[in-house]
Structure formats: C-alpha cells, structure tokens
Computed example of a mutant assay.
Amino acid sequence: MTDDPRQNPATRHPQPDLPAQDQPHPGWTGPMDPPPDHGEESYRGSGRLTDRKAVITGGDSGIGRAVALAYAREGADVLFTHLREEEDEARETTRLVEEAGRKAVAVSCDIREEANCRALIERAVAEFGRIDVLVNNAAYQMSQPDGIEAISTEQFDRVMRTNLYGMFWLSKFALPHIPEGGSVINTTSVQAYKPSPHLLDYATTKGAIVTFTQGLAQMLAPRGIRVNAVAPGPVWTPLIPATLPDTVEFGKQSPLGRPAQPAELAPAYVYLASQEASYVTAEIVNVTGGTPLP
C-alpha cells in the first residue's frame, strides 16, 4: 500500500479478475493470491491507544490480524483468539504485535461454547487486569447457492452460535472488567442491509449484530462505555476462498470495483476505540467501497 494521498482508490489494490482459488475452511493466508495486505508495510501508529488492553476474536488473519497490528502500533496490548487449526496464522499475528513492542496473547478458543467465552475473559483479565476494548470480530459463513433447502440445521446452528452467541457471551462476561471510557466494537457487514441469497443465514446474523450494537450502546451509555460496529463490504481474507464458490469476480460488485484489503478496515476500528470517537456510540461505520447503506 502506498501512502500517496492522490492515488485512485479504485486501483490502489488488486482488482478482479482475481485468480480462481479454493481452500478448505477456515482458510489460510499463505496460499492466497494475491496475498492480503494487513498493513504490515503501511500502518503507522500515533499513540492513540497507548497502554490500552484489547481483546479481539478472530485475530489470527484477515480483518482481525489487521486490527491487532494497528492496535499494537497505536500502543495497545492485544489478546486474540484463533481456532486450533490456525496456530501458524496466530504465530504471525503474535510476531506483528510483538514487533510493535506490545504484549501479544494468542488463545485457541471456540466461541460457540459459553464456558470457552467465560474462560477467555478470565484469561484476559489475568493477563491485563482489565479490558479497555472488546472487538467481536470472529464469524463463520458458508455459501449455499442452492437456497434455504441446502442450509442444514448444523450449518445454521454453527453460524448463529459463532456470530451471535459468542458476541453475546463475551460482551456479557467482559462488561464487569471494562472501565469507564472503554468500548465494544462489533463486526457486522454490508450483508446486514443488502443480503446475498446464498448467504442467508450469515446475513441474518449480521442484521442482528446491528440491532445488538445499537441496543447495547444505549444500555451502557450511562456507564461511560461506548458500543459501535464496523460494516465491511467485500474484504479479501482467507474466509473468501474457504467459503465462496467463485473468487474470480469477488468484490467487483462494489462501486470501487474491487474488494477491500484488511488494512483498509483497521483504521475504522482504531477510530472507534480511541478518544477521538468519545461522542460516537450506537453507530455503524460502513466501509463498503461505495455501496450505499442506511
């Protein structure tokens, strides 16, 4: 990524047609072509999160890795989750955080289980003493172009428990450890407003995340805790070759004509966690490449 402010955003990163590629779930960064940009060479911190303590779910790759890197370069210590099969990905995120001079704690955790979510928060408190920022980012999707009849109860349950239950439990358990001035940031999606039929169950959860965010924000405002969400459009992460049948034209539907890179999402999460957003709560920050949303 170049720092030239004059560069055309439509051509700043790779555009479709992307190489056709397929991976088993959950997907890995290494085989992706082109490789995702998490801000490794471009993100410059300015002390906006100095000594903050952050918990990020799904921080091993994609948006989560970009947020972990940006938070560390802004001065925060980071605990992040990953799946057991993502150990190699987690090591890379750990390296990036530690190279920024901050503490990294990688935790293998399946947030579909309430006990795991409780244990994760207890681990974060043991490591950091408090949680200044909780980023509920982990998600699961699986394309079903054959319609609702093809969505099994097992798949529906996995999507709901990963995307909604985990967010609910982690927010609930973290709340006693979030001080005044802290924040919760959830990852929703353009799918919340413009659902793709082949992602019906996933889009349903993303709509629910918008409602949860806006409701919880009103609940916690008197306690000095802000709750917001980021709604990405198409983003080039390992989830894409692992869950969608066609990567060649991925992102072409956005007005900018390409998918976002994870690095382009991270600044929104930094802003929402920072004191620059002290009067921002119950908001959805749309990073969609130009797709108009409510």
Score class of each variant (00 low, 15 high):
E114T: 13
N116W: 08
S108C: 11
T162Y: 03
V159S: 06
D132L: 12
L175I: 05
S152Y: 04
A260I: 02
M160S: 03
V78Q: 02
A277F: 02
D37R: 14
A10E: 03
P26Y: 01
P238F: 05
E122G: 01
Q218K: 15
Q141D: 10
G289W: 01
R112I: 05
I148N: 02
A231P: 08
Y43M: 11
I209K: 06
P34C: 12
T57I: 08
A229H: 06
T93I: 14
G58D: 07
R161N: 15
R223A: 14
E283T: 14
D51Y: 04
Q261S: 09
W28R: 13
T204Y: 04
Y269L: 09
L170G: 04
G39V: 13
E180M: 09
E74W: 09
R44L: 12
N186E: 08
V55H: 06
N136T: 13
H177F: 06
Q218Y: 13
G27M: 02
D37W: 11
S254D: 07
G289C: 00
L256S: 03
T187D: 10
F156W: 15
D4S: 12
A150D: 04
A273W: 12
A68C: 08
T188D: 05
L134A: 10
D22T: 12
A260D: 06
P24M: 04
P197F: 09
E276T: 10
L164I: 15
R158G: 04
T162P: 06
W169E: 01
Y271F: 15
P222N: 12
A174H: 02
V235H: 08
T11R: 09
A192E: 02
N8T: 11
T162W: 08
W169D: 00
P294D: 04
P31S: 03
L175V: 00
E86G: 11
A115H: 13
Q214K: 15
P292C: 06
K53W: 11
R84E: 14
A150E: 06
P238Q: 00
G58P: 08
G181L: 00
I63F: 00
R44M: 10
D4A: 09
H38R: 07
A68Y: 06
D17I: 12
F173I: 11
A268W: 02
P34W: 10
H177C: 04
E127V: 01
A124G: 06
P241V: 02
G45T: 08
L79N: 05
T93F: 14
L164S: 04
R84S: 14
E249I: 07
P197W: 03
H13Q: 09
G182M: 11
L96E: 12
A72K: 11
K206W: 00
W236H: 07
A54T: 15
P26D: 00
T153S: 14
Y202R: 00
P36F: 11
N286L: 04
H82Q: 07
T162C: 09
D51P: 01
Q15Y: 03
E40Q: 15
D4P: 13
K206M: 00
V210W: 02
N8E: 13
E98P: 03
L175D: 07
T243D: 08
R95N: 13
